[in-house]
Simulated assay, not measured.
Amino acid sequence: MKQADVTLTRETIVAFLGSIFDRRGAEEYLGEPVNMGQHMLQGATMAEQSGQSEEIIVSALLHDIGHFTSEFGTFSMNDTEDRHHEDAGAQVLEQFLPSVVTDCVRYHVAAKRYLCATRPEYAARLSEASVHSLNLQGGPMTAEEVAVFEQNPNLEKIIAVRYLDDAGKRPDMETPDFWHFAPMIQRLVDAHAQDLSVKTQG
């Protein structure tokens, strides 16, 4: 099921996302020892196991979905410029999911730049691939960028998803598949639709 084959709606978005995991989850993840599907499923699984909210779990699961939906294609260690997968993913998801989820997706790259600027020990732990992508993405934030970023009301959750992103690179970790999380995504989709309906009526 490709996007060209289906009109994305509240009723079809979860199946569409699941089809991406099923069809393309085995693709290489940025030179890391796990594939794309494993990477995102590991973040979601760790979030679930640690009792995080459904918003955080779903954000971790979908944070890199833009690698598949972006017209720019998938990151490679040979890249010489950023491909902005975070924006591509957020643009698809913002139609269906709460702003906290789309903020976590849209700003997970910015969160890496933020943490590198504000927590030196964080930068020292980055993988080789993460360092490479950091350089393409602008490097650590400036003081001005840090000040602006800290105004985001979802900052704490964005940072939480960033740490899950960094942790989801374990070749020995077993996880459920996408469909384990599908009902959770649907609940957030339905709640978002209801919120929009209330705002429209109001």
Rank of each mutant, 00 (worst) to 15 (best):
P183N: 02
H132M: 13
E121G: 02
V105L: 05
L61W: 08
H180C: 08
R24N: 09
E28D: 04
A191V: 10
L41I: 02
A167I: 11
F181V: 00
Y163W: 02
S133K: 06
F181Q: 05
G202V: 11
Q52E: 15
D172F: 03
V105D: 06
P176K: 09
H63A: 08
Y122M: 07
Q91E: 14
S130K: 11
A147V: 07
Q52D: 09
T9C: 03
Q186N: 12
G31C: 04
Q186C: 01
I158Q: 01
V131A: 10
N152I: 15
K199Y: 09
T74V: 13
Q38E: 15
A90C: 07
F96D: 03
A110G: 05
Q49N: 13
V148H: 08
N35S: 10
F75L: 10
T175A: 05
T142V: 15
Q91R: 08
M184L: 13
L17W: 02
Y122A: 07
Y114D: 04
N35C: 10
E156A: 15
V146A: 08
P183R: 02
K2M: 04
G73K: 05
A143C: 09
S76T: 09
N152Y: 09
L62G: 05
A191Q: 13
L115Q: 11
S70H: 04
I185T: 14
R170S: 11
E32T: 14
S53F: 06
D103A: 12
E128N: 11
L155T: 03
F75P: 07
L115G: 09
F21E: 01
L134K: 10
T80S: 12
H85W: 01
A191I: 08
G31E: 00
T74F: 09
D22M: 00
H192C: 13
V146D: 05
L164Q: 06
V109F: 05
V6A: 05
E94S: 11
K169V: 12
G139N: 05
Q42W: 03
R162M: 15
K169D: 02
V101G: 03
Y163C: 08
G202D: 11
V34N: 05
Q91G: 03
H84D: 06
L97M: 13
T200E: 15
M46W: 07
R125Y: 06
